Simulated scan of single mutants.
Amino acid sequence: MTGSWRSVWPKGFGAGLMAIYRRELVQDARGLLAYLFAASFVAVSVLLAFQVGGLFEAGRADLAAFFQFHPWLFVVLMPALSMRAWSEESRTGTIETLLSLPVSVPALVLGKFLAAWTLVALMLILTTPLWIGVSLLGPVDHQATLTAYLGSFLLAGAGLAIGMAASAACRSQVMSFITALGVTFIMTAAGLPLIASTLMPILGTSATAAITSISLLDAYAGFERGVIDVDSLIHLLGVSGLGLALAGLWVDNRRGGGR
């Protein structure tokens, strides 16, 4: 079986990446889990916007009440979405076959990540009828709304990358989920004023500033307001890059330092 895979699998980085990407998308399309994730995100995010955020009670045509809950939804959804990436391969025994293919580790990691990120994009696209509905009620700043969607997409990517690293490091899906959930929650909650005010008397100004600087919530805040801040953009992309780099190191270690 392995030999037949080797005979047809492309060897180039780009071709290998696309092969892994298509493989993951096909697996998602054939299973129910991806559909459940998408339906859950759309239902819960819209419900929170109306029931908790008071979307229409604010008296203005914008989606601020919708976007404010995304960081906390992603704290749970992104670890849940990514926990199967490598842990499931270990559980089913397909990890050995996958790592034996003539595809580089970066292509393996990026292929899986981009497939999951594509699912996130589809989840966000499914919420656009809310955007259309609100725009029918009054003038909406479409540029600001599009920027907020971009921020949500980048924030989700950072959460996915953290989850991918946890999945590569943990053979158990449960441990992968718990680890990613803990790290993502800490990196999100670090931006809360309550955290800063609590740590300041204990750690001092410099240490508190260093801890709060990792906040995904702060990096997302500018996008939420419709502003693309370069530092925030670098922060979110940097977290994604670091998470994928760690995932690649752990996957390469399991491969035995191979290709």
Score class of each variant (00 low, 15 high):
181 L>C: 07
43 A>H: 11
64 A>V: 15
256 G>I: 11
257 G>N: 09
72 W>N: 03
221 A>G: 08
242 L>Y: 09
175 M>G: 13
45 S>C: 05
36 L>H: 10
84 R>I: 06
197 S>F: 12
200 M>N: 12
213 S>K: 13
122 L>A: 12
254 R>K: 13
7 S>K: 14
174 V>Y: 15
249 L>S: 05
246 L>K: 14
189 A>Y: 08
78 M>D: 02
239 V>N: 01
39 A>K: 09
208 T>V: 06
62 D>S: 07
21 Y>N: 03
57 E>F: 11
132 I>S: 03
143 Q>C: 10
117 W>Y: 02
219 A>C: 09
173 Q>G: 04
195 I>Q: 05
160 L>Q: 03
249 L>Y: 13
202 I>P: 07
208 T>G: 01
162 I>K: 04
91 R>Y: 15
21 Y>S: 00
179 T>S: 13
225 R>M: 03
60 R>Q: 09
104 S>Y: 05
43 A>M: 10
238 G>I: 11
34 A>N: 05
45 S>D: 06
64 A>S: 15
258 G>P: 02
143 Q>I: 15
19 A>E: 09
13 F>V: 12
39 A>L: 10
107 A>P: 04
167 S>K: 11
7 S>C: 13
163 G>L: 12
127 T>K: 06
133 G>S: 07
239 V>K: 07
67 F>W: 12
73 L>D: 01
145 T>N: 04
29 A>I: 15
12 G>N: 06
92 T>L: 14
223 F>K: 01
99 L>S: 00
115 A>C: 07
198 T>Q: 09
241 G>V: 05
50 F>C: 09
